[in-house]
């Protein structure tokens, strides 16, 4: 069972690279935000996996719950902030 969790974590880590591409090279700021949101939702699963591998799920569940809330608040705050910025559309045009 431990091996299965380990390999799931490795696959999940490689899957995180794809949204990282979007977060680094996304044409607009909101594309980067989408990438960061996707990485966050995978991190929640990753935290539980770490807890299962180290046999401390009871501790890591609380961390995962707090991380889920923090991810939600971060996305909400960032999208509220960027809607006031002008020139969001122009960044995509230049490239």
């Amino acid at each position: 069972m431990n091996d299965i969790f380990l390999y799931t974590g490795i696959i999940l880590g490689f899957l995180m690279l794809l949204p990282t591409y979007r977060a680094l090279f996304g044409p607009t700021v909101l594309d980067r935000l989408v990438g960061v949101n996707a990485i966050g939702s995978k991190t929640i699963v990753m935290l539980i996996l770490i807890g299962l591998i180290y046999k401390r799920v009871d501790m890591f569940v609380d961390i995962a719950l707090a991380y889920a809330m923090l991810n939600f608040i971060a996305v909400l705050a960032a999208s509220r902030y960027f809607q006031k910025q002008k020139g969001l559309y122009d960044e995509g045009q230049e490239k």
């Binding site: 607009t28 909101l30 996305v75 999208s79 960027f82 910025q85 969001l88």
Partner: peptide, 12 residues
């Protein structure tokens, strides 16, 4: 929230 930010920024 993200879609709303996109609409307000004028992304087509």
């Amino acid at each position: 929230a993200i879609v709303d930010a996109g609409v307000r920024a004028g992304l087509k």
